[in-house]
Amino acid sequence: MLKINNLKAKVEEKSILNGFTLNINPGEVHAIMGPNGSGKSTLSNILSGKKGYDVSGEILFENSDLFSLETEERAHKGIFLAFQYPLEIPGVNTSVFLKTSLNAIRKARGEKELDALEFLKLVKQKSKDLKFDEEKLNRQLNVGFSGGEKKKNEILQMSILNPKLSILDETDSGLDIDALKIVANGVNSLRRKNNAFLIITHYQRLLDYIKPDHVHVLMNGKIIKSGGPELALELEKKGYESFS
């Protein structure tokens, strides 16, 4: 599904990713752990199509060259990024934003757009599943949301858009224990044979709830070790020191 080959990225002559290689197959869950500043968000930004990086290497998503696709075209193809720091958009109603987003993607795929009623039904159901306070749907997007509420809003969007590849950039940071379980359940309920997850986290705890197939350790812009779930436990015990 996703093939990243020898990805290098620089910002203003500063190297951030230094030959990053990773393969994700449909149905898999991959976790990436790594110290602050190791390049995790940079990786997710580049996958999502954010501009401003000087990149080389190759990224294929379902055999198309990701670099030739605009950000929104990647979204249309089913790439979703739950942002580490979700953005606030004043004056834009949360529910309207979700509907605009869903319909933009459906339209691009040649699917029928949902009308107000169909959408309302969907969003109500998903909010209920994720215990997302419905009252927030009528507030301005992320404005005045607590840190945890913003993260939950990202997962609500993910579950409405039902993407092929979901990238979660530290979605667990800032969530309370109950919210963490709800979010993990949300992810688990979306797991299918034909979609995949890339989960960036600092904490092993999340991986108790979402069982990853592969765990990778990212340091200085490249993967220095890969393994199964046990690698996360090892990291938790020994810290990153032992890997450098």
Binding site: V92, F97, T100, A104, I105
Partner: peptide
Amino acid sequence: HYCQQRGLNSEEAVGLIVNG
């Protein structure tokens, strides 16, 4: 970028933000 990641093209994104 956030709006575009959610499937809106840049013109639609600007329209949305400005209308907000």
